[in-house]
Each structure stands twice: as structure tokens, then as C-alpha cells.
Design a protein around this nucleic acid. Structure first.
Lengths: 202, 202
DNA sequence: ATCATTATGTAACGATCAGTACATATAGGA
DNA sequence: TCCTATATGTACTGATCGTTACATAATGAT
């Protein structure tokens, strides 16, 4: 790919790395609890650099949410969609949910949206729409995975895909809440098999 | 009851009313997002009065959480425990969850713990223990209700009470998240019957 | 009437907040 | 070499933060 040369002083930091650092701070401390001092410290840049690259605190926050929705939050869904056997797919999904709720590389627990961002709904413009879109997208993909099994004949034609997708979403919420509360992944993994069985029952 | 007279200037405000007002502010804006100005304004008292009665901002916050856990959060559980027929009990529980997630008298949506307090786990001392205790207590009471049905013979002796209690808890988490995201109660009530059926299935 | 105790209100403290003005630095293009 | 454009760092702005000192008020007890 042809990299166009850009006039002006080159940026001294990596935009995506800084964004990830900011996300970790927001995830841990929340929007209001994260000060510009916290953010610039973690990102390794100064205030003017942050404002030039990301806009303002709110703009940065919304970008971290968008990043999370397009990256971290998709990892369990990708695991579900990438596994051909539906039982294994559900286990992979739940295992990945539990892993990210307890052992995320940022050190933060739970889910960025469900354990942190949700508290700022109604407080920070742009958040509610993103949370609503994330729910819709996630449930849509979960339902699509069940529908794919119906098409394969593995599940009955009258299998309630949307209902089970919504239930799977709730199970995800439960795990994220418990992850934030400090539960170990071992403790949460105990019920996975019986839940998979129930999710696929007629 | 013999009310002992108390020397000193009588308090000019009602402690419990003020506590409820404070809870509404914390629920809506979170711990960091709620300023002392927000709190004193909603409570109708001045700073020194707040400090004299509640300690400090953190002490007030923890008291609102304790209040929520002993009052609001119990309403759905009381509905579950108070209904003799298990199907009706589950419907009453879920309906009350949905109602409080969308139409709480404070105007705040979702659940105070799951949609607001959870963001301050790790940030405010005393929060994580309270959240952990709330999960344990809720799941215990949910399991006890299923066990009561086993004893009555309505449910099989090998009915997985604890598993179903944990699942019911997750369903609760899903509704609370969606409530905060702005979903209507109608939308959430759609699935209640099928979920009750699944929760009681063998 | 006075005292002890508790509560309230005003004003202020020391600290931190989000964001920016301005000088300087670093690149590519002419 | 000079110009234009973009980035960075220092210092600062105006505002708000959580909390408290101190004067005053309101009660019951003596």
C-alpha cells in the first residue's frame, strides 16, 4: 500500500495504542472518575496532544466505546461464529466471555459497556445510542448463529432462535456482572455445560 | 413505643427521605459524577448537615447502597417468595424486575447496583463487598424458592435449584441492562412466559 | 435563666478539574 | 533556504471539587 507522506510534524505517539490505554482507564474508573491527568498519564501524552488527536474528553470516551464494540466485544462472537459444531460454539462463546470478564489484558474486569459505560448512560451524550446499538448487534449475531443451525437441520425449524439469543445475552450479562464483582473464572465455568444443554433444548 | 427525647438542636430534615434523594442522584450520575452540590441540592440540606448526619461522601454512598439492598432490591424477591404458585411467583418476580428497571419512582432506570454502583467497584472502598454480598443473598433466596417447590413435590427432587437460581439472576441482569439502555417494559415483558417455562423445565 | 448538647448556615480552604494560549519543534514541498 | 502545516510542551485559565472553621440557632436538663 502506498503510504502518502504527510506534511507537518509527525505525531510522536501511536493513536491506537493511546486509545487502548485510555479505554483501560475509562473501564476501570468510569467517565467522571477518570481525570485528564489519569488519561494523559496512561496514554503517555500531554493535554494539547490529546485534544488535537481525540477532540475532547467526551470525544475520546466515545472513541474508546466504538473501539471496544468493534474489537474486544466481538471476540466471543467471533468464537461462536467460527466454530461449526453448535455445542462447541456455545462453549467457546461462554468461555471467551468468562475469560474476558476476568482476565482482560487491560487488567479491568467485567465488560467495558456493562460494568462501566452503562453508568454514564443519560450523563454523556452519545452513550445511550451506542449501548442500544451494541445490544441489537450482539443479539442479532447470536440469533443468526442459531438460525444457521436451523438451516443446517441441526435444530428444529421451530427452534426459538431470537428467544435463545436473548437468553444467551442475559447469561453474558450475568457473567460480566460477576466478573466485575470479583468472581473467578473457575467458579463461572462450572455451569457452562448445563447452560449449553438448556440453550439448545427443544 | 416510648420515644426518648433527645437534647440538642433537632434535625431539620428527615434522614431517610434525604437518603432516598441521595440514592436517586448516585443512581443517575454515579459516585464520581454526583457532586456534593448535586447531593445537597437534592437532599435539601447544606454541606455541614450532610457531613454531620452521614459522615462523608463515601459514607453516604455506602449507606445508599445498603438501603437499596435492604429495600428496593428486595421487592422482586418478596413478590417471588410471597406467591404460592411457582409459575405465578416467577412471573411476579420478573414483572417486578422489569417494572423497577423501567419505572422506578426515583426516575432512574436499570438497577442501582448493576447499572451504576458496579462502575465504582475497585474505586470506592466497601463497594465490592456489598456487590458480592448482594449477589450471594439474591441467588440464595432464588434457590430457596425453588427448593421450597421441591419440598412441596411440585418440582422433582433432582431439580437443579441452584443452577436455575443462577440463570434467573442472569435474566435479571439482562433486564436491568436493557432497562438502563432505554428499553420499554412492554418489549421486555414479551419473553416472560417462555422464560418461566424454561426455568421450570426438567 | 443558664448550661450542655446537637444542628444549621455562611464562607472559605486547599486541591483538582477540563480545556487552551502561545512558543517551539519537526516534518514535506516549493 | 524558506514556507506551510501539524505536533508538542509549558504555563495558565476559570470553574468546581470535597470538606471544614466558626458563628449562630434550637432543643432538653438543671
Amino acid at each position: 500500500m502506498n503510504v502518502t507522506k504527510k506534511i507537518g510534524r509527525p505525531r510522536a505517539f501511536d493513536y491506537n495504542t493511546a486509545l487502548l490505554q485510555a479505554m483501560a482507564v475509562f473501564w476501570e474508573k468510569g467517565y467522571d472518575g477518570a481525570s485528564m491527568r489519569d488519561l494523559t498519564g496512561a496514554m503517555g501524552i500531554t493535554g494539547p496532544s490529546l485534544y488535537a488527536a481525540f477532540g475532547d474528553k467526551r470525544g475520546l470516551y466515545l472513541k474508546t466505546i466504538d473501539y471496544y464494540c468493534s474489537a474486544d466485544a466481538c471476540t466471543p462472537l467471533v468464537a461462536l461464529e467460527g466454530e461449526e459444531d453448535i455445542e462447541k460454539a456455545l462453549r467457546a462463546f461462554l468461555s471467551e466471555i468468562i475469560r474476558s470478564a476476568t482476565e482482560h489484558e487491560s487488567g479491568a474486569t467485567g465488560c467495558f459497556l456493562a460494568s462501566s459505560v452503562v453508568a454514564s448512560v443519560g450523563q454523556v451524550d452519545g452513550v445511550a445510542e451506542r449501548v442500544e446499538a451494541a445490544i441489537a448487534d450482539t443479539e442479532h449475531r447470536l440469533a443468526a448463529r442459531f438460525e444457521r443451525e436451523i438451516e443446517k437441520g441441526t435444530l428444529d425449524p421451530d427452534f426459538p432462535a431470537k428467544s435463545r439469543a436473548a437468553l444467551l445475552f442475559d447469561i453474558r450479562q450475568g457473567y460480566m456482572f460477576k466478573g466485575r464483582a470479583g468472581w473467578s473464572s473457575e467458579r463461572m465455568l462450572e455451569e457452562v455445560d448445563s447452560r449449553v444443554e438448556m440453550l439448545l433444548s427443544a
